[in-house]
Simulated scan of single mutants.
Amino acid sequence: MVKLLFSIPLSLKILILSLGFWVIPVPINAEQTPVVPYDTEGGTEDTKPGGTRLIPDYHKKPGLRRDTQPGRTRDQCLTSENLKPLTALVPKSDKQLELTISPHPSLLIYFPPSQAQTADFVIYNNNTNQLVYKSTFDLQKNGGILRITLPPNSPELQTEIPYRWTVQLNCPGSNPPFIQGLIQRNIPTPELTQELAKNPTNQHWLIYAKAGIWHDAIANLAEQLRQNPNDQQLKENWQKLLNEVELNLIVTEPLI
């Protein structure tokens, strides 16, 4: 099954991973101005992963954008000389929605070495701007890939509704790095449910990936690799999955 997925042409693989073949996402109101959960001190925001608040005309361009390129400045926060950006492990795509079937999904975020000791995570209902959950968590000085999971006692994500999430580093300076994205919970099709039921759990990541359920795919594979860090097959699967969605810059970063 793994060989079949990675033998498909790159353009088709990205389409499969980012859209899925059975999901029709709910349209997002392009005229809605994103809620800014943090004080911009009169500045503007760039919602690209790794970016900083430097684009003067951002508020004239509604909607969220994504990029995995490094930000243009390290401000007073990021410390690595070979700077890799603060990055969400999601497919690099013009499509905004990231999909899950979990009521309490996980997000994987790469945190570069920085002076920040903590980071904030917030998630809003993108239709109503209602806060769903927020938390502050500790960071490791040397950075790495951290799994952020909505706890069981937090409100469930409702199906077919886009939610906007933000992760921001808490560090000196007026422009702390942050990233944003949109996630949506979809109802699994009977076909997907059947495939999951008849295959072992160590293959579920591949089934999710083929169905375009990105967050569940990468969270499942990351958890297997965390539990079995010396498994060569898992390492190869992890590398191939990240390379296929243009996350090769962080494929060797540790899971923390």
Rank of each mutant, 00 (worst) to 15 (best):
Q232G: 06
N220D: 02
D216Y: 11
L242H: 00
T252I: 04
L241C: 01
E244H: 03
L249C: 08
Q233W: 07
V245T: 03
N228Y: 05
E236C: 07
H215A: 15
I213M: 09
Q239P: 01
I250M: 09
Q232V: 15
R226L: 14
L234H: 10
E253S: 12
E236K: 10
L221V: 01
K240T: 02
L234N: 14
E236Y: 08
R226G: 15
I250E: 01
V245E: 10
D231L: 07
Q224L: 15
W214H: 12
L241T: 00
K240W: 01
D216T: 12
T252G: 10
D231P: 08
K235P: 04
E244T: 10
T252C: 03
G212A: 04
E244L: 02
E236I: 08
L242G: 03
T252P: 02
L242N: 06
P229A: 12
N228F: 00
Q232C: 06
E236V: 04
G212W: 03
E246I: 08
V251T: 10
N230C: 09
W214R: 13
L234F: 09
L247I: 03
E246K: 08
N220L: 04
L255R: 00
L255Y: 01
N230Y: 13
K235R: 13
L249D: 14
A219R: 07
L225G: 08
E223A: 07
D231S: 11
D231F: 03
I213S: 09
G212C: 06
T252K: 14
P254H: 04
L221C: 11
L234C: 07
L234I: 10
Q224P: 05
